[in-house]
């Protein structure tokens, strides 16, 4: 709709352009754009260069990489490398494949993101819309947990998970992490910005607390949900320390741990499978990138469409 409008208003400008001064301005704009593009390309190179090199290098065999270093051109080992990375049993006990590790990471990332969104939305809903004793205090207590990142409370957390017998389980990996002060804070701020009349209109329309949450607040929050989902999924996917402590069973290995695992060579004379480590790193990047791309679309669409 807005694009149509731009096109419509843009049209008359084009025939009006051919005067001398207008073309001069056009050239100026074009020169400007060239500079801008050079800057942008440089940025892209800086960010994408290492990834591209990692990818090309991963298509060579480990001996070449070991003796000649990183490779800029493609080698002829693409299929064998990636087949091995995805399907070959690796690890100390040879129990887990790259595919399995990706699944574990996916479960961790999704559980992390979805769990955090559900818990923090419900917490923010209670804090903003229900008057209960010490409600504000509760919020500030939740908020102050921001001062205690995972690394600080990892020992007591381990103690609790171990006490519940949840070591080496997905529940143990995910559940202790799904409380989120950040998420609660963002949703609280968002709910506070929703006009009160909307709640009142819904009350008159016979929507109880559950319906108001589900029919009104959740759809209105979709951009917030998308944003928090992106962030939390990537955080969950990239968890390293936590899974190391909570799981000893190799069938729970995540991709991030797997990368390190490949480089750990047990017999001193062996050359580590550099190609496979790089290949796994490339594979480890794909899901977060996909998530960002997919949700970014929704995110922007939501921003453009919804008008409170």
């Amino acid at each position: 709709m807005s694009q149509d409008q731009i096109a419509v208003t843009g049209k008359p400008v084009v025939p009006a352009a051919p005067s001398a001064s207008a073309t001069g301005a056009g050239a100026f704009v074009r020169r400007h754009q060239i500079v801008e593009h050079i800057v942008l390309l440089f940025g892209v190179l800086l960010m994408m260069g290492p990834i591209a090199v990692a990818f090309t290098t991963s298509t060579h065999d480990p001996v070449t990489i070991h003796s000649e270093g990183m490779q800029l051109g493609f080698g002829d080992n693409f299929l064998p490398t990636y087949e091995a990375v995805i399907f070959e049993q690796t690890g100390f006990t040879k129990q887990v494949t790259g595919w399995g590790m990706s699944l574990n990471s996916l479960i961790l990332g999704l559980g992390f993101a979805i769990g955090k969104i559900i818990v923090s939305m419900l917490a923010a809903y209670a804090i903003v819309y229900f008057r209960f004793p010490l409600g504000t205090l509760c919020f500030w207590i939740i908020f102050s947990t921001l001062l205690l990142p995972l690394e600080v409370r990892i020992l007591p957390s381990y103690e609790v998970v171990q006490g519940l017998g949840l070591l080496n389980s997905y529940t143990g990996l995910i559940l202790p992490l799904i409380a989120s002060a950040t998420g609660t804070f963002f949703f609280r701020q968002f709910f506070k910005s929703v006009p009160n009349e909307l709640l009142e209109a819904a009350r008159i329309d016979g929507a109880g607390p559950f319906r108001f949450f589900w029919d009104i607040l959740v759809p209105l929050s979709r951009t917030m949900i998308a944003a928090i989902f992106i962030i939390m999924f990537v955080v969950g996917w990239n968890q390293y320390l936590w899974p190391i402590l909570m799981t000893t069973d190799e069938s729970f290995y995540t991709v991030v741990r797997g990368i390190r695992q490949i480089l750990q060579v047990w017999i001193g004379a062996d050359i580590p499978d550099y190609n496979e480590a790089l290949g796994l790193a490339i594979i480890a990047m794909i899901p977060p990138v996909l998530i960002v791309i997919i949700f970014q679309r929704m995110f922007i669409k939501g921003l453009v469409e919804s008008e409170k």
């Binding site: 009142e200 209109a201 819904a202 329309d205 029919d215 009104i216 209105l220 409170k308």
Partner: peptide, 29 residues
């Protein structure tokens, strides 16, 4: 409760549900 009072209210800022179509806005109650 407001919903059971047999009243209908029109607000100053309209308070329409922004994510619902006009049809759904009317039908929701």
């Amino acid at each position: 409760e407001p919903a059971n009072r047999n009243i209908a209210m029109v607000f100053q800022n309209y308070a329409l549900y922004p994510h619902m179509s006009v049809y759904k806005n009317l039908a929701y109650g």
